[in-house]
Computed example of a mutant assay.
Amino acid sequence: MSSSDIFIGETIGTAVLTLLGCGVVAGVLLKRSKAFDAGWLAITFGWGFAVLTGAYISAPLSGAHLNPAVTLGLAISGGTEWGDVPIYFLGQILGAMIGAVLVWLAYVGHFQAHLTDRELVGGPGAQDTKKADAAQAGDAGPVLGIFSTGPEIRNTAQNLVTEIIATTVLVLAILTQGLNGEGKGLGVIGVLITALVVVGIGLSLGGPTGYAINPVRDLGPRIVHALLPLPNKGGSDWGYAWIPVVGPLLGGAIAGGIYEIAFA
């Protein structure tokens, strides 16, 4: 694989993954959406299909890592050249940001309606002041969950461990499936299995933190949330933002180590 193939494949694949993944969350959370209040099952299966689609599109070019934790695990286990790792990372973060912008464009009217709904955000005055204070403090705003993850119970150690465990399961599942005949990534069945693993992780381990299991899937859209001109959007919760980055990277590294010890 050339550097340009890796970069283009990861950019496109991660953009599609983020567009469809964050898109299903937008559909479920935004009050005027037809999918409003469809629930956690819709979100978990939506993210699984997002992984499936992004991976199928990008696999011929880059092997469809779409996740720095996967790239790190593959590098540790010998499946990816260390020199290619920065190229994968750059394509992944750019793709995640592009995907988040596309979600905003697809739902722009719904964001406007949701964030100016008096029943949701209240009227002018005290409520505006409260939201301004929240934004200044960096607290999670009312639509941040569309773009990035956040814990139901804010406990740094537990939140970090949850992300490490969930990502270890994901990356180990990928590594133990092996590569296709060309050595470029998972085969057709492997991509499907990985998508189902993502659904399973969401159902089993997604409750505490929203299962980022992918640093750029969380960080890229969080940056976009901070930059978008959304009314009453609140803060981007930067105090929590390191956990869905560090946790998955540690999980990917642990999975790579386990693979080398137990399976290689």
Rank of each mutant, 00 (worst) to 15 (best):
V70S: 03
G122V: 04
S58K: 13
M97K: 07
V85F: 11
F7M: 04
T156I: 13
D237L: 09
V121H: 02
A262Q: 12
V169R: 15
A15N: 06
V70N: 06
V85A: 05
G91E: 14
I8Y: 06
T53F: 15
P142W: 00
T80M: 15
A135Q: 10
L186W: 14
L115W: 02
G91D: 08
V143L: 14
K233F: 07
G54T: 01
G190L: 05
I98P: 12
L192P: 10
W40M: 11
G257P: 00
G210K: 01
I146D: 05
T149M: 02
I98A: 08
S3A: 13
T194F: 12
H65V: 11
H225Q: 10
K233C: 07
L90D: 11
P151Y: 04
L17M: 13
V245N: 08
L115F: 01
W47E: 03
K233A: 03
L172D: 00
T209E: 08
G202D: 03
D128A: 05
G200D: 10
A166Y: 15
L19M: 05
R222P: 14
V101Y: 11
G27R: 12
F263M: 15
G73P: 04
Y107C: 02
I93W: 13
G252H: 03
A100R: 00
S3Y: 12
S236Q: 02
S148L: 02
G46S: 01
G141Q: 00
N155E: 03
G206N: 02
V25C: 00
S58M: 06
G202N: 05
A59S: 13
I6V: 10
I6R: 07
G48A: 06
V246R: 01
T53L: 15
W82D: 09
G73H: 04
G27I: 09
L72E: 01
G123F: 13
A126R: 12
D218I: 09
